[in-house]
Structure formats: structure tokens, C-alpha cells
Computed example of a mutant assay.
Amino acid sequence: MNVSVKTKNPLAIQGGPTLLDKMRRGELLVEACPSREVLKHVTSRWGVLVLLVLQTGVHRFSELRRAIGGVSERMLAQTLQWLESDGLVERHAFEVVPPHVEYRLTPLGREAAEKVKGLADWIETSLPRILQAQDSQSRKSGRP
């Protein structure tokens, strides 16, 4: 029996399950979807940069902070906690003095980092066109 479930997803095709339904994923366009928290963590400025740096290998906190210009200790710690809670980053604390903690991507994190890398690469290669569009928009609106 084919039962159609009505959703508030504006992209849903009338009369049948969406691709999202078929793959049993959340629905990002629905306000209460738990996928939104993961999306926020992975696509935040610091989340993207942490994933990109950890894609190069295992790093200590101080190495990550040096590699990611402008991130505060607090934001880096929070971002690492988010990504760890999502199963994307693994934290390994060695029982030594002074404390020694290393971070690495999990297999799931490597998948996410590869996706994020594609977006980051697109931004970098498209930056001249993006800056041109921003400049054009600023001139149209009279902003400096």
C-alpha cells in the first residue's frame, strides 16, 4: 500500500515520497529538523575551517588555533565540542603532564570534510567573480 505523508516541505513532489523520504533523512526545510544543528556545526565558518585543517591529519589544539587565523580559544573549543558530539571529530587525551590532546577526523568526519572542501574550493576559485558582483551591487546601492 502506498501511503503519502503530507509534509511542509515546499520541494516535495505532490502525490509521492520525496527523495529525502526515500533515503530516510531529516527534512532541513522543516523548522524542527535535528539535521539543522549538524548543518549549523558543519557549515559554520569555524566548523568548515576546522574540518579543512583536520583533513590534513592529526592536530593539537594549539596547532589548530595557529592554522585557523582569527579563531578565539573559546570558539575553537566550542566548535571542536560540536563536531565531536556529531561524530565528526575524535578527541584523544593523553594522560601526561602537561596535558596533551590530539584531534582527528572520524570516518564520518572525513566524508563531511570532503564535501566542505568542495564548497571551499568553489569559493576560492569563484572569488574574483564574487568580489566583482559585490562591487557591482555596492555601486548600485550607493554604498562604499
Rank of each mutant, 00 (worst) to 15 (best):
V116T: 01
E63K: 14
P99Y: 04
R110A: 05
V97L: 07
L49I: 06
V97F: 07
S136G: 12
L127Q: 10
P10W: 00
Y103C: 14
V96S: 13
V48R: 09
G57A: 13
K8D: 14
V30R: 14
Q137V: 14
V97A: 12
Q55C: 07
V53H: 04
I13F: 02
G16K: 13
H92L: 14
K22H: 08
H41D: 14
V53Q: 12
A112C: 06
K6P: 08
P10H: 00
R143N: 10
T7V: 00
E73V: 12
V96F: 08
L64E: 05
A133P: 01
P34L: 05
K8F: 12
L52N: 02
R143D: 04
E73G: 12
E84R: 12
A113Y: 03
L131P: 14
T56L: 09
S35Y: 10
A12D: 08
V96W: 08
K8C: 09
A112Q: 12
K40A: 08
P34T: 09
K115Q: 06
A32G: 13
Q134M: 14
K6I: 04
G87V: 07
E124A: 11
H41S: 06
R66V: 15
I123E: 05
E102M: 06
V3P: 02
T125K: 11
H100K: 14
V30W: 02
G47T: 00
H92Y: 14
A112S: 08
E63C: 03
L51N: 04
G16H: 15
A32Q: 09
P144C: 05
G57W: 11
D121I: 13
L39P: 07
W46N: 03
I130S: 02
V30C: 11
K22L: 07
H59T: 10
Q132M: 05
W82E: 05
V116S: 00
H59C: 13
D135F: 06
V38L: 10
S85F: 11
F94Y: 13
Q134D: 13
I123C: 10
A32K: 07
G15R: 00
Q137P: 11
V101W: 04
C33S: 15
R104D: 03
G109D: 03
V71A: 00
D135V: 04
R143Y: 11
Q78R: 07
E111M: 10
